[in-house]
Design a protein around this nucleic acid. Structure first.
Length: 414
RNA sequence: CGGAGUGUGGUGUAACGGUAGCAUAAAUGCUUUGGGAGCAUUCAGUCCGGGUUCAAAUCCCGGCACUCCGACCA
């Protein structure tokens, strides 16, 4: 993509009302824009990152049999009355149409997915089954904060699994814990993300959250470095030793919940009377699990975890582009460099390498600053100076390491 | 929802109750290109509604918005 075509520019300064590092950097670099408190647009660059995170999640949950669907966000009130959450859920957005009929703007989708799956599933032969979607969620947070870490409208991957019995549900739950491990590894925060034991497990003693260590986090976790797991603030009082190794050495850290897995059991299948015919001919209630990951929150968490004073440092796996190609030719005597930059851009693009090409007529300093801010992993600089030695400069955003390479070497690398 | 704070060009800031200024961005022209260049010209602003006053960005009241702390967060 040509940078001159990007409708979003960069900003020297973050808006004064944005203190969270994630939102501050993402806004300055032109990835997102704030509409109002806790509600953000994802712009050209931001959406590329967003979609990369989405695809990683999609790939991993597809591997364990997840079937992608898309459910609506506008839900009939009746479904929510059935589960009791129309009245009990304080952060539920309720909207009325002109005739006064009320609807819920979905904060989660159990009320929709259960009747949906019920209409297709009658037999134990249809189970187990899991469906998921990437869909907007609306939650009337009393206080939106921390940039995109706590939004009032956000996209979540929510997955729901349906089982004949608790044991099967629990096995799948454990499978999903592994899936989450892989997802967080792939998006680049695996090394600081801990499977965290929390209260309220229906099958086993615990439920689990995935918590990424960051000062921007809202939760406090206690990490057992021996086992690379953590336990949650709520249960440290009763659970004084590590549930895995039994030791009582913990490191206290602030963290943000980037994913969760729940054993819902029959909590939602019961209100909808969702039963199946088992092999013994009897009707039995379906057991259910659910698994969520907030995409924007993951994106914000990555920024919290990976930046420096100059800007964002994207992990390779979700960087908006592989390469940032910078044309540093001046007008005087720079025609050759300009031509070379164009040529390299065309070749890389034809080769299918994703590259952001800074073809703007700006000064070197501005291009470098923008490049640091945007945070693409590798920077290629085409300048008259380099070309005189027949070389291009390649710089690593993370390490700052600079190498002079030939054009041939560049095409061998990418 | 309780507490605190802040609302000034697109963005960041200044102005004792007395001419709304600066920087940056944007536009035009020329020049310039290895860490946010230079000159000239231009465009653009006091959150909304009341009140006090000869005079309000400034003081008062109400509203709205945003931020922070807390509460809340399947």
């Amino acid at each position: 993509m040509r940078q001159s075509h990007l409708f979003t520019g960069t900003r020297r300064e973050a808006p004064k009302d944005e203190v969270a590092k994630n939102a501050s950097l993402l806004i300055r670099a032109g990835f997102i824009d704030k509409l109002h408190a806790g509600v953000y647009s994802y712009l050209s660059l931001g959406l590329i990152v967003f979609k990369k995170i989405e695809n990683i999640i999609r790939e991993e949950v597809n591997k364990v049999g997840g079937q992608e669907i898309l459910m609506p966000s506008l839900h009939p009130k009746e479904n929510w009355l059935k589960t009791g959450r129309w009245d009990s859920m304080t952060d539920l957005y309720k909207v009325a149409d002109s005739s006064g009929r009320e609807n819920a703007l979905a904060p989660t989708h159990e009320e929709t997915v259960v009747p949906l799956v019920k209409s297709f599933v009658q037999s134990y032969k249809d189970l187990p089954l899991s469906v998921y979607q990437f869909q907007n969620k609306f939650r009337m947070e009393l206080r939106a904060k921390s940039g995109i870490l706590r939004a009032r409208e956000f996209v979540m991957k929510d997955m729901y699994s349906f089982h004949t019995d608790e044991n099967d549900m629990h096995n799948f739950y454990e499978t999903m814990a592994d899936v989450y491990r892989k997802i967080f590894d792939r998006v680049g925060i695996g090394h600081i993300t801990y499977k965290t034991y929390a209260s309220g497990g229906s099958f086993s003693k615990f439920s689990h959250e995935f918590q990424m260590v960051t000062d921007a986090g809202e939760d406090t976790i206690y990490i057992c470095d021996e086992c690379s797991i953590a336990i949650n603030d709520e249960i440290i009082e009763v659970q004084k030793v590590c549930p895995v190794c039994g030791k009582d050495k913990f490191r206290k850290e602030k963290a943000i919940e980037v994913g969760n897995i729940f054993e819902l059991k029959n909590k939602f299948t019961e209100p909808f009377d969702f039963k199946f015919k088992d092999s013994d001919g009897k009707d039995k209630i379906i057991q259910m699990g659910c698994y969520g990951i907030g995409l924007g929150r993951v994106m914000g968490a990555v920024v919290e975890a990976s930046s420096d004073s100059l800007g964002i440092i994207w992990p390779d796996s979700i960087a908006p582009f592989k390469l940032h190609l910078i044309d540093l030719s001046g007008k005087k005597g720079g025609e050759e460099a300009k031509k070379k930059a164009e040529e390299i851009y065309t070749k890389l693009t034809e080769k299918g390498v994703s590259v952001l090409y800074d073809d703007r007529n700006s000064t070197a300093g501005e291009k470098f600053s923008d490049s640091d801010l945007i945070g693409i992993p590798k920077r290629i600089i085409v300048s008259q100076r380099g070309l005189e030695e027949g070389r291009l400069e390649i710089k690593d955003r993370k390490t700052g390491e600079v190498k002079m390479i030939t054009e041939k070497e560049l095409f061998e690398m990418f």
